[in-house]
């Protein structure tokens, strides 16, 4: 097999590549934030006129809350009642599984194809 000689890349195109990478990185972090996908699926379960008992805090716990600067049950309410929702959205789970599995399958297949060229040139191409 003939040795592969890559084309020379111009300085300008090198910069285009770098800019592409940077833009992609920023997009990956910004889009989820903009689309409201970022962050957790959770909500506050409201209790009217909360007391420490209603929030199910033991006396020892109450003592620590106060030491931490959260003096009464009303102030602790939003922290304590902010709960996760673990109901599984099956559609989303399926989509996620397909995306991740598809990604890895492509990754290993394409890598293997490229790897064979590398090994060919390195060991068989002499």
């Amino acid at each position: 097999m003939a040795k592969y000689t890559p084309p020379e890349q111009s300085k300008e195109m090198q910069w285009v590549d770098v800019i592409f990478v940077v833009v992609a990185i920023f997009a990956a972090l910004w889009l989820p934030l903009q689309a409201g996908w970022a962050g957790a699926a959770r909500s506050i379960e409201k209790i009217e006129n909360p007391t420490w008992e209603a929030l199910k805090q033991t006396p020892a716990q109450v003592e620590q809350w106060v030491k931490l600067g959260i003096a009464d049950a009303a102030a602790a309410h939003d922290i304590i009642q902010n709960k996760f929702d673990y109901t599984i959205d099956w559609l989303q789970l399926v989509i996620m599984t397909v995306v991740i599995v598809g990604y890895f399958v492509f990754l290993f297949k394409a890598s293997d194809q490229e790897y064979r060229e590398v090994i060919d040139e390195k060991f068989n191409g002499k």
Partner: peptide, 16 residues
Amino acid sequence: FLGYGAQLTAMVIFYI
């Protein structure tokens, strides 16, 4: 996925 599913999918798409 539990709690951060959409973000996870978005990031894998970035890697794709």
